[in-house]
Simulated assay, not measured.
Amino acid sequence: MDATIATFLIQDGLTNGAIYALLGLAIVLVFAVTRVIFIPQGEFVAYGALTLAILDTGQVPATPKLLLCFGAVAFLLDLWSWRRSFAMRDLVKNIALNLGLPLAIYGAVLYLAPLQLPSFIRALIAVSIIAPMGLYVYRIAYRPLADASVLVLLITSVGVHLAMLGLGLIFFGPEGLRAAPLHDGSFTLGPLLVTAQSVLIYLMTILIMVGLYFFFEKTLLGKALRATAVNRLGAQLVGVRTQLTGSTAFVLAATIAAISGVLLGPITTIYYDTGFLIGLKGFVAAILGGMGSFPITAIAAIGVGMVESFASFFASNYKEIIVFGLIVPVLIWLSLGANHHEED
């Protein structure tokens, strides 16, 4: 391997690592606030990429219909939870959020999809379809179990992952799709040919990290999420609405995953089940970051991307084994420092 090949591998590792960094940050965010190991994160990536690919053809994707289904189920669950304490104000809010929002998005997509709008507008439409799914998934699957153990929440995540995987097969089919690049430009940097799509991935990763920093440091809702992450019960005692912080964390995670999908869709073919493997690599980065540190998770994600890139060159058949094997020494180290005790 010469310097030119190494440079190409480093570029590929940085590009993949930037995507894994976004997913790792979202996984850490959801876990810190809700104690949920968000396994379905990868499905939102696949949904975002496939939605953009279908929008590129001028057709209406199936995801707005899926969003309507999620909203309808959340609406019925809210009605059931209010069966003993019904309030008209809550009903109006429920209709607007769970039925009005999906219907508005569906109507907008029906009108805008055939117009062949610029690529960035299509990407925004795809993100706007996928982001509210985080809210409905939280309401349907996780909010009723907010006080359950981490093990129960993990089992729930596995169930949600399998359900969304099946829905992806139903709504998108088994064929892979590839979206059009958000920008066709490219330039040379020494021996490298750097595409505008790669630059967009780097820029969006940096912008999202900076945006999350200011959100958590400068906004009241962000500080409420931090308080919930530190001590959920203590946050409730001082008036923080943990249901709001939980739903906010899931919406942010779904938004980040959708953005990752529209960035990743133009550089590789995405299938309905592709997101699971991508999400697992973001999870590896989150584990390496201790499931609690955003900066360390981002650095670890770049490392995961680099290891994957060089492993694909030297031992492509064992690439996934090498990547997932990175967490073994970390887990052993953490287990040695943990205080073991029997739980009731």
Results as ranks from 00 to 15, higher is better:
W80A: 05
W80F: 09
W80I: 03
W80K: 09
S81I: 00
S81R: 04
W82D: 03
R83F: 01
R84E: 01
A87P: 04
A87Q: 05
M88S: 08
D90Q: 10
D90C: 10
L91P: 04
L91D: 00
A96T: 07
L97G: 05
L97E: 03
N98R: 06
G100E: 13
G100W: 10
L101I: 13
P102D: 11
P102W: 09
L103P: 05
L103C: 10
A104V: 15
A104H: 09
I105P: 09
Y106E: 11
G107P: 11
A108H: 13
L110H: 15
Y111H: 14
L112R: 09
L112W: 15
A113C: 14
P114E: 09
Q116S: 13
L117W: 08
L117A: 10
S119Q: 14
S119C: 05
S119I: 05
I121Q: 12
L124P: 07
L124S: 13
I125L: 15
I125W: 14
I125P: 12
V127P: 08
S128D: 06
I129W: 13
I130K: 08
A131Q: 09
A131S: 14
P132R: 04
P132C: 05
M133C: 13
G134F: 06
G134Q: 02
L135F: 10
Y136E: 07
Y136K: 02
V137P: 03
V137S: 05
Y138R: 03
Y138E: 07
I140Q: 01
A141C: 11
R143N: 00
P144K: 01
P144H: 00
P144D: 00
P144N: 01
L145G: 01
A146E: 02
V150L: 08
L153D: 07
I155T: 14
T156G: 04
S157K: 07
V158P: 13
V160C: 13
H161V: 09
H161K: 09
